[in-house]
Nucleic acid binder design. Structure first.
Length: 188
DNA sequence: ATCTCGATTGGCT
DNA sequence: GCCAATCGAGATG
């Protein structure tokens, strides 16, 4: 089984964030296939995490963080859509934000959507990759396998780095941003 | 109904 | 490196 399923996401949020690095995100439509390697992620937790959407408990946006692992959370910040995958067992809040992807298939479509021809400008940020892949709020609250998205295993060794999360107003003391070292497609 | 603000981006200094 | 644009959710009245 090369496709990630519920059990992959039903684990500690940090582990999922780390293990997602190097995996391939695929979106298939009738006449196109987009894909790319996940190179940067961030872990977000429940009400104890001041940077999390769940910091004020369950709201219209955050309630999905208590849902089944593998559910998709899409929401808007500064008019950009951001995609997350829900982690931990149902009832325990957690999500992993996809921050950057290395484009593989479908670069032509991504360039058109992004109105950029530089491949480093296609998916090097959480808002950029959703635009390049054509991912918006219609994916919110859906389980990944109920959509045209898949995440595929990739037997490639990756060297992982970590840091504080980017752009958050108030962070936790730990390092919850994970990335593939020396990759050229990171958000910064 | 109105106000504030952000898990961002892109352009300019 | 700094800052304006932009819009929906959440808070407030």
């Amino acid at each position: 089984m090369r496709e990630l399923t519920k059990s992959f996401f039903e684990r500690d949020t940090e582990k999922v964030a780390e293990d997602l690095l190097g995996k391939i995100l695929v979106k298939k439509t009738d006449n196109s296939e987009l894909s790319g390697k996940i190179v940067e992620t961030e872990a977000y937790f429940g009400p104890e995490d001041p940077a999390s959407r769940a910091s004020n408990g369950k709201t219209k946006i955050s309630k999905v963080m208590w849902e089944e692992p593998g559910t998709i959370l899409v929401y808007v910040v500064h008019s950009h859509d951001l995609i997350n995958f829900i982690t931990e067992e149902k009832g325990t809040p957690g999500a992993v934000l996809i921050r950057a992807i290395e484009p593989l298939e479908g670069k032509k479509i991504m360039k058109r959507r992004r109105e950029r021809k530089n491949i480093y400008e296609l998916c090097s940020g959480p808002g950029k990759l959703t635009e390049a892949f054509g991912i918006s709020k219609e994916y919110n609250m859906k389980k990944i396998n109920e959509t045209n998205l898949r995440i595929i295993k990739n037997n490639e060794e990756v060297e992982i780095g970590c840091s504080s999360r980017i752009g958050v107003k108030e962070d936790l003391p730990g390092k919850y941003r994970f990335f593939i070292k020396n990759n050229k497609f990171l958000s910064r």
